[in-house]
Nucleic acid binder design. Structure first.
Length: 460
RNA sequence: UCCCCGGUAGCUCAGUCGGUAGAGCGGGUGACUGUUAAUCACUAGGUCGGCAGUUCGAGCCUGUCCCGGGGAGCCA
């Protein structure tokens, strides 16, 4: 007999004479005459109720089953006479596959997120974490669907890089050098003896690589892991996270802002339509306002606000800020929150930032003071997307590289894209985990990735 | 990295004036013929985060380190 998953069983149209299901015991209620087993197999949030009668030959074993045990059940699917569920399975056989001793760490009660983080290998067996990781999987596919439907090509940019993309964050070294005996020359580490013959790092962004493919395949995107070795201890940062970076050829900042809005709205609508059961759990137990937040995002155009006007709004507001609001200074968390949560009460795209607070590759505007950069800010999370139209003019780009004191030679291949058939192009980066926080209401980024990597934390 | 808060039973927490420790849940045993985080009875669980100090005496006071949370910086 073929195994059927709980998800299919629960959506069954009619009773079934014989089914086989396998999964893990969530809870067990028993008495002398029969037992109720709540069985979950991860296929969906809901459990299926299994009734085991005491005349079953191994009933003594069934009564000693515990939360967490793995079992196989054969029986028939019938309409449940009890309240609370449509279907239940009357067992004709229960096979014990894997026991769970009484020190099983997950109890049938609510645990704190902090505790569950210490058992990250077991937490997906809880309702909340099962739900977020099912949603993580579904949204990963939705991201590819969004781009593939629009004829964007997925580019696998490298994880190990030799380029120093200045300003994008601190990097992890990749090396095979003997750390007890590092070869040196003139007091510096001699990377010539290292695996690649030069200094190597884990990628902090696939952008520069994907830009090169943008000038051949047109519209492209990356979706993969990214690494930053910054000593950030916040609920919004990790050392390893997943990033989506589209890049469009023959596109300007307006196109970029539109793509960012379309992308977020597509994913929010997808979640509401395709993950409704799991989403309901978050709306009920994690964030009571989740559904209205998502409705608001899905159904309204994002506010588009030039940086200069954002500064004016902040300066005119009666709000007291800890950090000074001044043209030329970057917006702080408190400023972003004021704009999205209090002033506009919806996502805001701030664009045309002062050039001195933004990266070297962003396109200089005609005012020569600002660059064609944009950040999409959402309530509670803050910056979810950072993007720009790229500087496609060779002379402007080399001038900027020189101004910042970077070594032009390191960017020879990047500059080639401006030398040969350069085109206006634009793109952005979106942190996948921040998106998951947005659609689930989960407030700590460590709880939307299977095994979080943060400073001083590398368990599992 | 900085500021603030916390660490007591497996989990969530209480612990008065400094006098050697409590509850709920969970676990175990038993009862119970339709339960929904079942209910009822009984029962076993403790290096009070580590180290040092003050004191006749420290879960409680002091110092320090470790870990967790919230906020900030940096960013996605």
């Amino acid at each position: 007999m073929q195994r059927i998953k709980v998800k299919s069983l629960l959506s069954s149209e009619s009773a079934q004479e014989e089914v086989l299901l396998k999964g893990w015991v969530r809870t067990l209620r028993d008495n002398k005459a029969f037992s109720f087993i709540e069985l979950n197999d991860g296929s969906c949030l809901a459990n299926i109720q299994v009734i085991v009668d005491s005349n079953l030959e191994n009933y003594a074993d069934v009564m000693h089953l515990s939360t967490g045990a793995a079992i196989a059940v054969t029986g028939k699917l019938v309409e449940s006479p009890g309240k609370g569920q449509k279907w239940e399975v009357q067992a004709s056989g229960v096979e014990l596959i894997g026991t769970a001793p009484d020190d099983y760490p997950l109890q049938k009660k609510r645990h704190t997120d902090e505790y569950l983080r210490t058992i990250a290998h077991l937490r997906p067996r809880s309702n909340k974490y099962g739900a977020i990781f099912r949603m993580r999987s579904a949204l990963s596919k939705a991201i590819h669907d969004f781009f593939q439907e629009r004829d964007f090509k997925w580019i696998h940019t490298p994880i190990i890089t030799g380029s120093d993309c200045e300003g994008a964050g601190e990097m992890f070294h990749v090396t095979t050098l003997d750390l007890m005996n590092v070869p040196k020359q003139n007091g510096e580490v001699n990377f010539v003896e290292d695996f690649f013959g030069k200094e190597a790092n884990l990628t902090v962004s696939g952008q520069l690589s994907v830009e090169t493919f943008c000038t051949s395949l047109g519209d492209v995107y990356t979706f993969g892991p990214t690494f930053r070795s910054e000593n950030s201890n916040t609920s919004r940062h990790m050392a390893e996270f997943w990033m989506i970076e589209p890049e469009m050829a023959f596109a300007n900042l307006q196109d970029d802002m539109q793509l960012g809005q379309d992308f977020i709205q597509y994913l929010v609508r997808f979640t509401m339509e395709q993950c409704s059961d799991d989403l309901e759990l978050f709306a009920k137990f994690v964030d009571k306002e989740l559904m209205s937040t998502l409705d608001n995002i899905a159904n309204n155009d994002f506010v588009r606000l030039p940086y200069t006007e954002a500064i004016e709004i902040l300066q005119k507001s009666s709000q007291q800020f800890e950090y000074e609001v001044k043209w030329g200074k970057d917006l702080q968390s408190e400023h972003e929150r004021f704009l999205t949560e209090q002033h506009f009460k919806q996502p805001v795209i701030v664009y045309d930032y002062p050039k001195d607070i933004k990266a070297f590759y962003m396109r200089l505007n005609d005012d020569e003071k600002t660059v064609a950069a944009m950040d999409i800010l959402v309530p509670a999370i803050g910056e979810i997307i950072g993007g720009s139209q790229r500087e496609e003019r060779y002379n402007f780009l080399t001038k900027r590289i020189k101004e910042l004191g970077f070594d032009e030679a390191n960017y020879w291949w990047y500059l080639d894209t401006r030398k040969y058939g350069t085109v206006p192009h634009a793109g952005f980066g979106l942190g996948f985990e921040r998106l998951l926080m947005l659609v689930s209401g989960i407030s700590n980024i460590r709880d939307v990735i299977p095994f979080p990597r943060t400073p001083k934390n590398l368990e599992f």
